[in-house]
Design a protein around this nucleic acid. Structure first.
Length: 235
DNA sequence: AACCAGGACGTGA
DNA sequence: TCACGTCATGGT
């Protein structure tokens, strides 16, 4: 039978160690495994500048690799656009050219403007989830990432990787996004809020790591840290 | 050379 | 609600 979710979490944590998300550019040099910092140090991130960077990054990384996004964040920063006020008064073509490598650059330029306006209204208060979801360009995963990583809210981020992992572990179809989030959240409800946020912070980062190395669309089960507990293991 | 990447939206059934 | 097309660049 599939082990408890907490067991999955600890197996991943033992294997990969703390991931140190969100990967803010200011922290790029620090190696999460070098002991240079502790993942709890950044939840929640301290400055409005960093919260905005997280939101922008969450949008830019939609269906794209983080590596592409990093370059775009640098370009935005270097052109003075990594600030909500500046983004809102900049010509659309300037924004588009700055974020081109992240793909969907026309859509994402619009999304960044929508998010900037929203950010001005709410930050530094953590926005209510429904309000965040009402922003054009911010869906469930992006909203949850922002709530968790920018505002330290105890939200379990459910993305395509999470669903894939759960389905492979159990061998059966997972519930919808809301149902899956509830199912994954419940085992941790006895933890106090800040600790829960810290666990969810690491958990999502670890799931992404697993998805990149083993639990890919074409699975590489050899050497997977969950090989002994996964019903689909062996391919 | 197809396939995938830390999705979301619009549309028609 | 769900399936499907669209958005787009870059790495493997």
């Amino acid at each position: 039978m599939t082990p408890p979710i907490s067991d999955i979490f600890f197996r991943l944590l033992e294997t990969y160690g703390p991931r140190g998300w969100w990967p803010l550019r200011a922290l790029r040099r620090l190696d999460p495994r070098s002991g240079g910092y502790h993942p709890g140090d950044f939840s929640p991130p301290v400055s409005a500048t960093q919260r905005f960077e997280i939101g922008v990054g969450a949008i830019l990384t939609q269906n794209t690799t983080w590596k592409q996004v990093e370059g775009c964040l640098d370009t935005l920063e270097n052109t003075g656009l990594l600030v909500p006020e500046a983004l809102l008064q900049a010509p659309l073509e300037i924004i588009e050219s700055a974020i081109r490598p992240s793909g969907y650059f026309r859509m994402k330029a619009r999304k960044l403007c929508e998010f900037s306006r929203f950010f001005q209204q709410w930050d530094p208060d953590p926005p209510p989830r429904p309000q965040l979801l009402s922003v054009w360009g911010i869906g469930e995963e992006t909203a949850d990432s922002i709530l968790l990583y920018a505002y330290g809210q105890p939200v379990f981020v459910v993305d395509a990787y999470t669903r894939r992992l759960v389905e492979r572990l159990s061998g059966e179809a997972a519930p919808g996004c809301a149902g899956l989030r509830k199912k994954l959240t419940e085992p941790f409800l006895r933890l106090e809020t800040a600790r829960r946020a810290q666990v969810f912070n690491e958990f999502h980062a670890l799931v992404v790591q697993l998805a990149k190395t083993h639990c890919r669309s074409r699975p590489l089960c050899r050497g997977c840290p969950l090989e002994t507990v996964c019903i689909s293991a062996g391919r």
